[in-house]
Amino acid sequence: MEEQRTRNIVGLTGGIGSGKTSVAEILESEGFAVYYSDDRAKDIVNEDEVLIQKIKELLGEKAYVDGVYNRKYVSDIVFNDKSKLEQLNHLIHPAVAIDFENWVKNHDTRFLFKETALLFELGLHKKCFKSLLVTADENTRIKRVMDRDGKTYREVEKVIEKQMPEREKIKKADFVIYNNSSFQDLEIATKDFIEKLNSL
């Protein structure tokens, strides 16, 4: 992405159960445009014919059932195979990057937000003007995901163990919102962040 584009892009990230989607929705309610990388990736793997073929070559024909991305089959393969996961990411993320560039061209405001779970892992924060991390205590995050997805404590814990440690993300982030209490507190913290961002 050309240099001048980075000046108004803010990376928004957070681990599972952190509440980054809630922050994204608050930002939208305040008039900001948010690009949901993770949601777009789910669409792109079903839309991009070249990508579809490459994924089949990597993971086999069973990666798609009746032309639809077989998320459970793919997850079962890559969850315990780091090499396959990295190869899959190297296929999907460039396609998402192109989609994001096209999205940016259609939005002309002072700040645009790029929501992605892997902002720091993929080094995407280096292309952003600033980065915002939404975080919460691990037990709080696990309970949220258990309540939301019906998973066991250990199932959520395994997912968290595979993500970059929160302490590392906090060191890398320009701004951090701690989401350990109520939605009202999260709104206040997000609006406080907006004031700081606008003052830059």
Rank of each mutant, 00 (worst) to 15 (best):
M1G: 03
E2A: 02
T6D: 00
R7E: 13
N8T: 11
G11P: 06
L12S: 09
T13M: 07
T13A: 10
G14S: 05
S18V: 13
G19C: 11
T21Y: 04
E28A: 06
E28N: 03
E30Q: 15
A33P: 02
A33S: 12
V34N: 06
Y36I: 10
I44R: 04
N46M: 12
D48V: 02
E49Y: 09
V50A: 13
I52F: 01
G60V: 08
A63N: 01
V65D: 10
Y69I: 13
Y69W: 13
D76L: 13
D76N: 12
F79E: 12
F79H: 06
N80G: 08
K84W: 00
Q87P: 04
L88R: 04
H90E: 14
H93M: 08
P94C: 07
D99P: 06
F100N: 00
E101F: 01
N102V: 09
N102W: 07
V104M: 10
L112A: 05
L119G: 00
H125V: 02
K127I: 03
F129S: 10
K130T: 00
S131K: 08
L133R: 04
D137R: 10
T140D: 04
R141P: 10
R141T: 09
R144A: 09
V145H: 08
R148V: 08
K151M: 15
T152H: 01
Y153W: 15
E155C: 11
V156S: 02
E157L: 14
V159M: 02
I160N: 06
R167Y: 15
R167Q: 15
K169N: 12
I170Q: 03
I170G: 00
A189C: 06
K191V: 14
F193A: 12
I194W: 11
E195S: 14
N198F: 13
S199D: 14
L200H: 09
L200E: 15
